[in-house]
Nucleic acid binder design. Structure first.
Length: 268
DNA sequence: AACGAAACCTGCGCGC
DNA sequence: TGCGCGCAGGTTTCGT
C-alpha cells in the first residue's frame, strides 16, 4: 500500500502517538517476520524518535534502530491489550501507556530489521537507498540515468537510483513530464531529469498533504492511503480519456508492473 | 547490464 | 456455489 507519502503519514502519526513510550513486551505471531533476538532486544527500550528514509520507517530506540518496511499492505493500529488479536495482526508491541501497537499485514511481505545505532545507515537496507526527490541533485540524477539504458519507469522504481517513488507516482510523474515510461534512461535529457525531480517533489508533496487530511477521519488506522484524495491523471485509468488530449490511456506491463500512460502526450 | 519470470503471501473481483 | 485466473501502491533472486 505505501509509497513515500503514505509512509510519511504513518511516520508522523506514529511519532505523535508513541514517542517517549517504552516497549514492555512484544508478541510475534508470524515468526518469519521478526527473529527471536530482535523480539527480545526490543523489550525495555524506549522509543526516542521515528524517522523515515524512502519507504522505510525507523524506530529510534534507546539502544538500537528498528527498521520497518510496510511493503504492499503493512499497516499499524492502536488497540487495547484485551482486544482480540486478529488474523492478520502479526506483531503486537505492548507500550507503556497501556495500549498496544499492532502491525497488520495481509500478505506478510513486511520486514523488520534491528541495527546498531552507529551503523544502521552504512548497512543494508538503508545503505542501498538513494536520495529522495526532495534531496537528490538533478545533475547527479541525470548522470546516473545517462549511464544506464533501462526503461525510465523501471529506473524510477529502483530505490538505489531515486528513493520513495512507487508504481502510482512513477506513472503520475512521467505523465506530468510528458515522458513515455518505456524511454531508455540514456535518452533522458538533463532538462527532463530536472523535470522528473521537480514534478516528483510536487506530486509527492501533494500526496503527503492528502494523506494528512485522510488520516484524521481514520483515527485508529494508520495505514490509510491518501491516494483517493488525489486526482490521478493516468494511473488506473486504462481506456479512459487523457485529461490533456482526450486519447485513450493505455496499460502496459513494464518491469512486471502495470503502467498507465498516454501514447500521444508521452513521447518516446 | 538489462530483462523476464518467479518468489515471498493473501484476498478480491471476474467470467464461466 | 465453486473454480480458475488476473490483479494488487514492493523488493529480491535467479536464469538468460
Amino acid at each position: 500500500m505505501p509509497e513515500l507519502p503514505e509512509v510519511e503519514t504513518v511516520k508522523t502519526v506514529l511519532k505523535r502517538r508513541i514517542q517517549g513510550l517504552t516497549i514492555q513486551k512484544v508478541d510475534v505471531y508470524y515468526e518469519k517476520m521478526m527473529d527471536i533476538d530482535t523480539q527480545q532486544a526490543l523489550v525495555g527500550q524506549t522509543i526516542l524518535d521515528i524517522k523515515r528514509y524512502g519507504k522505510y520507517i525507523c524506530f529510534v530506540l534507546s539502544n538500537h534502530i528498528l527498521i520497518c518496511h510496510l511493503r504492499m499492505e503493512g499497516r499499524y493500529f492502536f488497540k487495547h491489550h484485551d482486544e482480540p488479536v486478529l488474523k492478520h495482526e502479526h506483531i503486537v508491541f505492548h507500550l507503556s501507556d497501556g495500549l498496544s501497537l499492532r502491525y497488520h499485514d495481509t500478505r506478510k511481505f513486511g520486514t523488520f530489521d534491528l541495527r546498531d545505532k552507529d551503523r544502521y545507515l552504512s548497512l543494508p537496507p538503508l545503505s542501498l537507498l538513494s536520495k529522495e526527490p526532495f534531496d537528490i541533485d538533478p545533475k547527479a540524477f541525470y548522470l546516473t540515468l545517462k549511464s544506464k539504458s533501462k526503461a525510465i519507469k523501471t529506473a524510477l522504481l529502483d530505490q538505489t537510483i531515486i528513493a520513495g517513488i512507487g508504481n502510482i507516482y512513477a506513472d503520475e510523474i512521467l505523465f506530468a513530464c510528458k515522458i513515455n515510461p518505456l524511454r531508455k534512461t540514456n535518452l533522458i535529457t538533463q532538462k527532463e531529469a530536472k523535470a522528473i525531480v521537480e514534478n516528483g517533489v510536487l506530486i509527492l508533496n501533494q500526496a503527503i498533504l492528502a494523506g494528512g487530511t485522510t488520516i484524521r477521519t481514520y483515527v485508529s488506522e494508520l495505514g490509510v492511503s491518501g491516494r483517493f484524495q488525489l486526482k490521478l491523471m493516468v494511473h488506473q485509468r486504462e481506456g479512459e480519456p487523457c485529461y490533456t488530449c482526450g486519447s485513450s490511456v493505455v496499460r502496459e506491463v513494464i518491469n512486471g508492473r502495470s503502467s498507465f500512460y498516454c501514447k500521444k502526450c508521452q513521447s518516446r
